[in-house]
Design a protein around this nucleic acid. Structure first.
Lengths: 113, 113
DNA sequence: ATTATACGAAACCAAATGGTTTCATGTCAA
DNA sequence: TTGACATGAAACCATTTGGTTTCGTATAAT
């Protein structure tokens, strides 16, 4: 009940460039925190925080193995992004519709004044 | 030269829910600031700032008409997002590859220890 | 000419963000 | 058991962010 109400959504999660790099890095490999942070010019703790943000957004899954925590990509939440994007896709698919809208709103005013 | 070096990229721009609503609102209509801000529970100035962020990311275009500034959607920068997304798409297209990766990285360790 | 409208700029503020360092804890290795 | 390693939690800090209010200015309307 009362879902933990994730603090971060996909949109926020991918807004940060470091987090996007993290996703890319974890695409093909499940990796422990220390190894992951080795790829970034910031402290392990900082990377760890980014990972938690990604985890809250559901973009990575963690798994405890001995004393280490391994992370791997879970692209599932990107579906939402895909759907969001699909809505606008038709607008660049044919620039015609764009132009149409532009002209229409333009006229609707010029003719009224 | 030396491009104004846009302060906001698409990822940041769409991270904010208000700005996503703005995009949606401007999808079918070119609108002046006052009208736009009428759709939001915040000050006109606040909306204006969001619009500037969107403009810097190239997601909206502004046009001065008399004393008003009209904004309209420009979905072009969303192509970049689309491309970014395409990279991950294959990973959810078949969960098989995901599982494969998972098992592989799992074994590569269990068998080594 | 005067007033009202549409807007941006500026100054300001609280909260969120991205980073740090330090400390505590659990697990592995000698 | 003793020490090293892997990690998260906590406290802290500077900057950014998202919002506000106030003021200036350009354009439109009377």
């Amino acid at each position: 009940m009362t879902q933990p109400l994730p603090k971060y959504d996909v949109f926020q999660a991918i807004a940060d460039p470091t987090r996007r790099q993290l996703l890319q890095l974890l695409t093909d490999q499940e990796m422990p925190v220390t190894v992951i942070s080795g790829h970034f010019p910031m402290s392990r703790t900082a990377v760890s925080k980014h990972l938690r943000v990604l985890a809250e957004a559901g973009l990575v899954k963690e798994r405890k193995v001995g004393r280490e925590t391994r992370y791997r990509l879970d692209p599932e939440p990107l579906r939402e992004l895909k759907r969001w994007l699909a809505y606008y896709e038709r607008y660049w698919e044919n620039k015609l519709s764009m132009l149409k809208h532009y002209v229409e709103s333009d006229e609707s005013d010029e003719t009224t004044s």
